[in-house]
């Protein structure tokens, strides 16, 4: 048993180390540039310039897209796909978080770049009228993460709704005794592009309460408890797409039996 515990601890340490590994990833703050490509609906391009490297990146694939009036925190991985439909190498996976730093809005023409024709992202939910397949048992305690923009508690469309929809489907089948929702915030300051960034400690509680309210609405009658933690550590949950910073900004839905 002791050996098992040691092994588990080693595994955890390895996992944490992997989760913190930022090699090959980029992270910077920039004012977004909108490239007015037109390949139909939602086909405009979002570009951001990393001031320190001088590189321009295509961040259009972020589930939460920029506002041209505000700076964004960009976190991503250079895509293996070399195509540049927006005129810059894409980051994918990528996240952009709106910061409260004003920017001069800037739009550039398509300049011959086609942009991307919109396709439904992988993480999209079916209409409420469509029955969800019942996930197979056996059912035991399980935790479902949900992820957020920097310093926000707002559910990200076609990301968090999908994560929660999956969690709710499983919980309805598993019938746990209660849910424990824990909100996390990455409160340790870090300097990115010369900007000191730290999430507000309150963000942890806000995330817990936002998810708890949503779970109460989706699963009325099920007991829901909330907790929150600051100084969040990264995890390597797959739905954070290998972006450790994204994994820190989360809430966890733990189904307890």
């Amino acid at each position: 048993m002791k050996r098992f515990a040691l092994l588990a601890a080693l595994c955890t340490a390895t996992t944490a180390q992997a989760a913190q590994d930022t090699a090959g990833l980029v992270r910077f703050v920039a004012c977004p540039v909108y490239r007015d490509t037109d390949a139909g609906r939602k086909s405009g391009c979002w570009l951001t310039d990393d001031r320190e490297t001088g590189k321009r990146w295509d961040v259009t694939e972020s589930p939460y897209k920029p506002d041209w009036n505000f700076a964004v925190l960009v976190e991503g991985k250079p895509s293996a796909n070399t195509a540049q439909p927006c005129g810059a190498p894409p980051l994918d996976p990528v996240r952009t978080s709106r910061l409260d730093i004003p920017c001069t809005r800037h739009m550039i023409p398509a300049e011959g770049f086609p942009g991307r024709r919109y396709t439904l992202p992988r993480r999209n939910i079916a209409p409420a009228s469509v029955a969800r397949p019942v996930p197979p048992g056996p059912y035991a305690e399980r935790t479902f993460p949900v992820y957020f923009e920097f310093d926000k508690d707002f559910l990200v469309y076609q990301y968090d709704d999908w994560l929660i929809d999956n969690a709710v489907t499983w919980i309805k089948a598993a019938k746990p005794k209660k849910l424990v929702i824990t909100g996390f915030a990455a409160t340790e300051p870090e300097t990115v592009s010369g900007v000191v960034l730290a999430e507000r400690p309150e963000a942890a509680q806000e995330r817990a309460e936002t998810i708890a309210e949503t779970m109460r609405r989706l699963l009325p009658g099920l007991a829901v408890e909330t907790k929150w933690e600051v100084a969040a550590k990264a995890t390597d949950e797959p739905e954070a797409d290998g972006l450790p910073w994204q994994s820190q900004r989360r809430a966890e839905i733990r189904a307890v039996f």
Partner: peptide
């Protein structure tokens, strides 16, 4: 009519 379980504009599941 309710199309989807969420209100994406408010960032919550629909109220009951």
């Amino acid at each position: 009519a309710v199309g989807f379980p969420f209100d994406p504009k408010q960032g919550y599941a629909l109220p009951l």
